[in-house]
């Protein structure tokens, strides 16, 4: 009995965004990464094209992080050296790209100067040949002073820089516009703001429409993940149905969010009924990432090398053709 396979007819597809630049293109990356371009729901190869596989970054900080002790064995030796840390992420752990968080720029921590931040980014770019994402310390006022020096120091590299928010998107967008980088547009689990922010950035420069990455804010498993999941499903459906202002690739800090919560961190001795801590943490992070892959994420930023490994394996499996 021949079953009539159900394929959605979509009017549009997700825009493609290129990350990084090779020598020919004015940068120093060994290769570029293209994300987006889907004309189907996640991994439904039978109804459209999924030309680019989702990519997975690992997180690097520019100072010793306050992470769970279980990370010592993976990164303890390089905590003090962001460039070596980045290299280890790529060479040993197989990260597709690197995200550096300039945590030390926080005025309440080291208050690192914009020039020193730019120097750190330069060093990382020298240490690894994959595309690089750079995000600030999270304090908008300070971060706004970082973007231009970094964008200029890395001119031509086609970095991904963030984050731009509804109340504060101009500084980072200008820096990206002037030096041809890609901007992360972050909205607080709110699809309306997500769309509006993309419009505002595109209004600053129509050319930016192919240089925006959506960060809808990905909540961790158990902490509002279903809100982010549904927003991403709606955004992706909207994109496929022709809503261009939602038609950008999506990105999320699955590692950062997962390792903030009790379930990933609480020690085995303190909560034996939840099982072994590190394994639990790895799966908390990987399950969070798995869910976002199913709702359409294109760039995942992970923290634990073992979580990255299992998620990359899952992406390999899901990228296999399933057309009928």
């Amino acid at each position: 009995m021949a079953v009539e396979i159900q394929k959605e007819k979509y009017r549009s597809k997700v825009g493609e965004v290129v990350l990084g630049a090779t020598k020919d293109q004015g940068g120093t990356r060994s290769h570029t990464i293209t994300v987006g371009g889907e004309s189907a729901l996640p991994f439904l190869h039978f109804e459209g094209e999924i030309p680019n596989r989702p990519v997975v970054a690992l997180e690097v900080w520019d100072m010793v992080p306050d992470w769970n002790p279980c990370f010592e064995q993976y990164f303890g030796d390089v905590y003090n050296d962001p460039a070596a840390w980045a290299k280890k992420c790529v060479d040993e752990y197989g990260a597709d790209l690197i995200q550096v968080r300039l945590k030390s720029a926080d005025p309440d921590l080291n208050d690192t100067s914009p020039e020193d931040c730019a120097a750190t980014v330069k060093k990382i770019l020298e240490a690894v040949s994959v595309p690089v994402i750079v995000i600030g310390c999270g304090k908008a006022e300070k971060d706004n002073t970082l973007y231009t020096p970094i964008a200029e120091a890395a001119a031509g590299e086609n970095l991904v820089m963030g984050v731009g928010e509804l109340e504060n998107y101009k500084a980072v967008t200008s820096a990206c516009m002037a030096n041809n980088h890609v901007v992360i547009a972050q909205s607080p689990i709110d699809i309306n703001i997500c769309k509006q922010l993309n419009i505002l950035i595109t209004e600053m420069s129509p050319a930016m429409s192919t240089r925006i990455i959506i960060d809808p804010t990905v909540a961790a498993l158990g902490y509002g993940i279903e809100y982010s999941y549904s927003i991403m499903e709606r955004a992706r459906n909207g994109a496929l149905q022709g809503d261009k202002m939602l038609g950008m690739p999506m990105y999320g800090n699955a590692g950062f969010e997962s390792w903030r919560v009790k379930e990933a961190n609480i020690l085995t001795e303190e909560q034996p009924e939840w099982g072994e801590q590190e394994e639990r943490g790895i799966l908390w992070e990987a399950t969070t990432a798995m869910a976002y892959l199913q709702s359409g994420i294109d760039i995942l930023v992970m923290r634990h090398p073992e979580a990255l490994k299992v998620i990359k394996g899952n992406i390999d499996d899901l990228m296999k053709d399933n057309s009928y």
Binding site: G275, R280, L283, A286, A291, N314
Partner: peptide, 27 residues
């Protein structure tokens, strides 16, 4: 667990898996 998670996300009404440790089932 991740494979089971994919099926659970997209429409399986029953998922059968071998994993049986607490830290594996909780997520």
């Amino acid at each position: 667990v991740i494979q089971a998670g994919v099926y659970l996300s997209k429409y399986a009404d029953v998922v059968v898996l071998k994993a049986c440790e607490k830290q594996q089932l909780l997520p």
